[in-house]
Amino acid sequence: MANATVAVDAHDDHGHHETNTGISNNKLAMWLFLASDCLLFGALISTFLLYRTNISDNTPFTSPSDVFDIPFTSLSSFVLLMSSLTMVLALSAVNRDDQRAGRIWLLTTALLGMVFIGGQVYEFTVFNAEGLGYTTNTWTSAFFTLTGFHGVHVSVGILLLLGTVFGTRNSGLGKEKSETVELVGLYWHFVDIVWVIIFTVIYLIPIG
């Protein structure tokens, strides 16, 4: 009986194992992954910084500002920023056990992510039409690699969001799923803060 009590105490109300840190292993693993992902994006951003003046090689452009459409990218950035809001509203709804609102906010977040990816595809298409291909020069290689990797992260985030919504159709998206939604949210917000850096460093900060 005593053993059974200990066994029950060793789990929290979400059915997760008790840990020494008081943090669930899944959450700790997600933060560890995000910390390691900083190194990936650090490498890509640093590489772009090294080559950021090379846009004139094999192209008629003299500056990145000749090719960037700042109003359009600003709108995309705003969309991604607002998707972080809908993500926290989804988590808040799930914590209240409001399944319907939770699903709506998660789907809205995925939709905003798709709008962002659509904007990125449009931008890449315009660049390609202007003669800026992946191998045109070191600037384009670094730019497409950095923004492409970020786009892949956003796409994975969209799949996670849709997987959370549609994977819980039978089991429900109640309070017991709050950690799952929180983990997807952490990933999504990380993708957002990486874009905050990319938008400023790559698009806005002037050269020279």
């Binding site: 840190t21 943090i23 959450k27 700790l28 933060w31 560890l32 995000l34 910390a35 390691s36 992902d37 900083c38 190194l39």
Partner: peptide
């Protein structure tokens, strides 16, 4: 601990 973990990577 989570802040410290993330800050370490950053």
């Amino acid at each position: 601990v989570l802040t410290q973990l993330f800050m370490f990577g950053l």
